[in-house]
Design a protein around this nucleic acid. Structure first.
Lengths: 164, 164
DNA sequence: CCGAATTATTTGAAGGTCAAAACAACTGCC
DNA sequence: GGCAGTTGTTTTGACCTTCAAATAATTCGG
């Protein structure tokens, strides 16, 4: 009954099937695109998506960032970043140094080589994304941007509420 | 110039910034919600998201599915499913038997306990999702569904084209 | 200046992920 | 029947990921 969903007075489980279907579709889209990007990165540049993402964060800031900053930006755990950085320093893409002002802090930056490699990858990456979304018109893109912004805000609010 | 994007006659890199921003926003939304679901599942039921997802697939089919079916549905690799199933059989949530007609094939089903546990989790899960999307109106949901369907089709087409 | 609380990072254990190779069982062709 | 190719599953090895505990360095109140 329409009344129920308006009054919220019912104890019976409400129907949230639409939201669930929406979530599954959102997840499917993301998984599909992410998998595609992942495999193109591997195929074309022999690089993993997490490494690419990390380098993308660093490309934006010439002077580097701390590990904590990176982990916040990438929305992954601290421990995760430690290992990722480890391997990228090893391979010569990243430069890591202890901060002068705070000896707990590690500042990482792209090396010259790392930056050059990233720029090459990023250019192709951008073209892949454009191609993956190419059936969407300009208006679709705008509308999706708007709705996803709203979705993000909604999810953040809900997550925030739980975190007390 | 507008002409450029119409004629496609240019060699210069086009601006695909909008698609890229859209992709990043899509990814952010998904990561945010997925992380939230993941941590609620762990907190509330001490179960991982992949296990929940696998059980969700199986809940739909009383007679079970083969491992290949599962891996296609979940869009993950075969080897991945093997390990996942291993642990769920171990914990008593899944029943696994070799097919009579084809001895290569493993058919897995939820056990009575597995099904009961899943149903409990699924009910809460659905409520979480509804809450995470609660700021979206009915119209927003419909519109997002439509645009994501279009996005999925676009991505599939692009992926298909690459696969030759 | 000292100790407590805070903050940044690392480590370790458990699990999830993929690609590629290995294995096993089926199907079809001769 | 038997070999060749195909298909379903498992294994392997490398990497990614998280959480929680441990370490290390800073800050702050007294």
């Amino acid at each position: 009954m329409i009344l129920d969903s308006e009054t919220k007075a019912v104890e019976l489980p409400e129907d949230h099937g639409n939201e669930l279907r929406l979530w599954l579709r959102l997840l499917t889209c993301t998984t599909l695109i992410e998998g595609e990007v992942r495999s193109r990165l591997r195929e074309r540049f022999d690089v993993t998506l997490p490494r690419f993402d990390l380098m993308a964060q660093l490309d934006k800031v010439p002077d580097g960032m701390t590990l904590s900053d990176v982990s916040k930006r990438m929305m992954v755990s601290n421990g995760n970043v430690t290992g990722l950085v480890e391997r990228l320093v090893e391979s010569g893409h990243l430069d890591r140094r202890t901060s002068d002002s705070d000896r707990r802090v590690q500042v990482i930056r792209l090396t010259r080589i790392g930056r050059a490699e990233f720029r090459k990858m990023a250019a192709e990456h951008e073209a892949w994304i454009a191609d993956l979304f190419s059936e969407l018109g300009e208006k679709d893109v705008r509308e999706l941007m708007r709705l996803l912004a709203k979705t993000k805000a909604s999810a953040q609010k809900s997550a925030q509420a739980r975190a007390v």
